[in-house]
């Protein structure tokens, strides 16, 4: 295999590995921009993956599976909202709690319902989101450089992949060009001002966490019914936290979020590729270096060595209307 083919195959898997990160990081973007920290992204993604796989298995329809995942993920969001908005509880504690509930409940229910050690049954082809071949693949195949990129990287993904990339400009537009987005960002910076303007802080924040739940639903569905054909226990495997890292790495902005997710996805794909291979002159590079890289990069960024990441000012602070 020459270097170009290798690159194309790594880029292809970069896309596949970035998508759950992208949905989840955008989910975190909405929540955190509204001033609600969301450590529970991981749990929501996992719960959604489980629900999607169950519904898709029972109905044989991936779209219903996706809906199921979104519904469960939004329920988790609402619990998070109830704890952190209505009851003014600690948002981080609430998120940690929901991660545990999701991690445990998916396995307990999966085992009780399907008796396959926490797995859900294998999905048939039509119950999953299958790869879409874009028009013109046959024409493009022989074009040098662009051809293989188009055929193997851009075409041949499932519908959720394209939706994820569409969600990036859409999120930008909602957050920065609509009244809802302006208010949402305001409530994350200075909820008192929003309240003074006669807008309900509570309702705005609830809407933000619901949007977050909605997007996590896509991430979960992608894991279990697009990328795989079943739910496997703990299948989110820390992706929620990597997405959180990507969100911070991108300084809470939608388009940089996409690039951060692609970067972290690339590191993951590259680590998979490098497994067991030796680099000339250095020898075998341990895969753990690539695995730790997203976290190390985020810490370096947080330390202020690559620009400064300013989180939303009111992030993590419950809003108390009366004193």
């Amino acid at each position: 295999m020459d270097y170009f083919d290798i690159l194309v195959s790594i880029l292809g898997s970069t896309i596949r590995l970035s998508i759950p990160l992208l949905f989840t990081a955008l989910a975190g973007l909405f929540s955190e921009r509204a001033g609600i920290f969301d450590i529970g992204l991981e749990g929501k993604m996992l719960a959604a993956a489980f629900a999607s796989a169950c519904v898709a298995y029972l109905t044989g329809n991936p779209w219903l599976g996706l809906l199921g995942g979104i519904a469960v993920s939004i329920v988790f969001s609402l619990i998070h909202g109830f704890a952190s908005i209505t009851n003014r509880g600690n948002q981080i504690v609430s998120g940690v709690a929901l991660n545990f509930v999701a991690a445990g409940l998916t396995i307990v229910l999966g085992q009780a319902w399907f008796s396959q050690g926490g797995r859900t049954p294998q999905l048939a082809g039509e119950a999953r989101f299958s790869p879409i071949t874009l028009p013109g693949v046959d024409l493009m195949r022989d074009v040098p450089v662009l051809g293989p990129l188009y055929v193997n990287v851009i075409s041949g993904n499932n519908i959720l992949t394209y939706l994820a990339f569409a969600a990036v400009p859409l999120s930008w537009w909602v957050l920065f060009r609509t009244r809802f987005g302006l208010r949402l960002r305001a409530v994350g910076e200075n909820p008192g001002a929003v309240d003074t303007a006669g807008i309900s802080v509570t309702w705005l924040r609830y809407r933000a966490v619901i949007v977050a739940g909605f997007l996590c639903g896509f991430a979960g569905a992608y894991l279990s019914i697009a990328q795989s054909a079943a739910f496997i226990k703990d299948m989110s495997a820390g992706k929620g936290y990597i997405a959180l890292a990507a969100l911070i790495f991108a300084k809470w902005k939608p388009v940089p979020v996409m690039f951060a997710c692609l970067l972290f996805g690339f590191l993951d794909a590259f680590a998979n590729f490098m497994q067991g291979k030796a680099v000339p002159g250095i020898g075998e590079v341990p895969v753990q270096i690539f695995q730790a890289m997203p976290y190390v990069l985020t810490c370096i960024l947080l330390a202020g060595f690559i620009g400064i990441a300013h989180p939303p000012k009111a992030g993590g602070v419950p809003y108390t209307k009366e004193r």
Binding site: I79, F82, A83, S84, N87, G89, N90, Q91, V93, S94, V96, A97, L98, N99, F100, V101, A102, A103, G104
Partner: peptide, 11 residues
């Protein structure tokens, strides 16, 4: 464990 954290902590 998750429920204990939820009720004893966040709620």
């Amino acid at each position: 464990q998750g429920l204990v954290i939820l009720f004893a902590g966040a709620l």
